[in-house]
Structure formats: structure tokens, C-alpha cells
Amino acid sequence: MSSISMRKTTLAAAGLAVAGTLVLTGCKDGNEEVPAAPAAPSSAASAPADGYATPPAGGASSAAPGASAGGYDGASGAPAAGGGAVATSGQSFKIGQAATIPFTSGSKSGQLALTVTSIEAGNPADLASLNVADKVKGQTPFYIHYTAKNTGTTDLSFASVGHIKGLLDGGAESGVLLIAGKFDKCPNESLPSGFTTGKTQASCAVALAPTGAKVTGAEYWGDPYNNLNKPAQKGLTWK
């Protein structure tokens, strides 16, 4: 077999391995989607999948705001265009405190001020209409409310923020449930049309905790804080 043929075979096998991983995790933007009860179609399209999954680990940090736990290219705490400093890898914030982050979604990139505003305990009965009882049995939903403000200079219309997961007491990660469709208890939609500098949108992420446990913190692990080529990267946390 020629070296070129061997290389093609190796690349094909690697491609199959990656595809297998995606099937097993079933994640999109870090959160696996489950279908909601029939509802009016959303203005932003999404590709639902069944069940729920926990996103890749992103270790919480007790680093004080401004401290770096590894950093990343182009955003090591330098002043941001919209004011403040870009959050560094592993940085920790208090609930209600904004983190300035570089943001990329598909072909769009810019800058956001991301703030986890509150974490609210729900009721298992809240999920009854989603027809996922077998997948959430023994779990209590918690609603992570957050806001995203455009502090950059680009229009981020229809971009999806996502990549928010819950942290249980002690720092363990919660399960995450992303709803495909309308869920009044915890609405989560793409950024609206005309999301230009200064615009803000409130959103929500559903975190699942075993009965008796509580979700007391949240983590953002979107790019570049989830850079798999740099294992030292850690997400941003709110507690």
C-alpha cells in the first residue's frame, strides 16, 4: 500500500471515531436537546435530539477576578473594546457580576458581557410536558438565568450563546437539558435580529440535580475557554 493510501485510510478511521463520539454525546453547543411539547415554531431553527447529557468538564476555579489560570491566545486579561478586561481562563465571578468574553458562533464573532443573574430551583413536574420522564427521573430542574450584552462592534443577530452548565454543591457538574422549542419556565432563544452594540438579551439554561442536591453555581465553557488543544483552559464560573 502506498504512503498516500495509508494516510487516506488513517484519516478515514479518525473521521469515524469522531463521528462515533458525536453520536454518543449527542451535544449541540454543549447541551443535548430534547423535543418539547408541540408549540409555535421558533424564529430560530434548531436540530433537536433526545435525552440529556453533561457537557465536557471545565473545572471550577476559586481564582479572584482578574487572575489567570493558564490564559489563552489574544485574551489574557487585556482591556476589552467595550470597557473592562477580557475574562481569563478559570476566572470566578459572583452571581450578578459581568464577565467580558470574546464570542464566536458559526461565522459570527464579537464580544459579550455575560452575567449569570440568578439560579432558581424548579419542580420535577415542570418537565412533564416535555415527554422525557424516563430520562429525568430522580432529577430536579434548576433554572440558570443569565444575560448577554453586546459590548463589541459587530452585529450578532441570530447567534446562539449556550455553553452554560450548572455546578452542584461541592463543585460537581450538573446534568444539562436544552429544550428544542418553547419552554416558558426557562426560555432560551438565539440572539434577536439587530443585536448590535449595547443590546442585551435575557436567557436561561436548565440544569438537572439529583433529588436532594442543589445547583449553586454556573459555568460558561464556550470557546476559547473550552479549547481542547490546550488542556489548561478552564471555564468561567459564577457562585
Rank of each mutant, 00 (worst) to 15 (best):
R7M: 08
R7W: 04
L11V: 05
A13P: 11
A19E: 10
T21R: 12
K28P: 04
S46F: 09
S46G: 07
A47W: 14
A49R: 09
A49W: 10
D50H: 15
S62A: 15
S62W: 14
A63L: 15
A63N: 11
P65N: 08
G66N: 11
A69E: 12
A69F: 13
G71E: 01
D73G: 06
D73P: 12
P79A: 04
P79W: 01
A85Y: 06
T88A: 13
S89G: 04
K94I: 07
G96Q: 03
A99H: 09
L112C: 03
T115V: 11
T115K: 10
A121P: 15
D126M: 11
L127Y: 12
A128M: 10
A128W: 13
S129F: 08
L130C: 08
N131F: 07
N131V: 03
D134M: 10
T140Y: 11
T147M: 09
T147V: 06
T153W: 10
A159I: 00
V161Y: 02
I164G: 08
G166P: 03
G171R: 06
G171C: 01
S174W: 00
A180E: 07
A180P: 00
P187Y: 09
T196K: 11
Q201W: 05
A205W: 00
V206A: 07
L208N: 12
K214P: 14
V215Y: 00
A218S: 04
N226I: 01
G235R: 01
L236A: 03
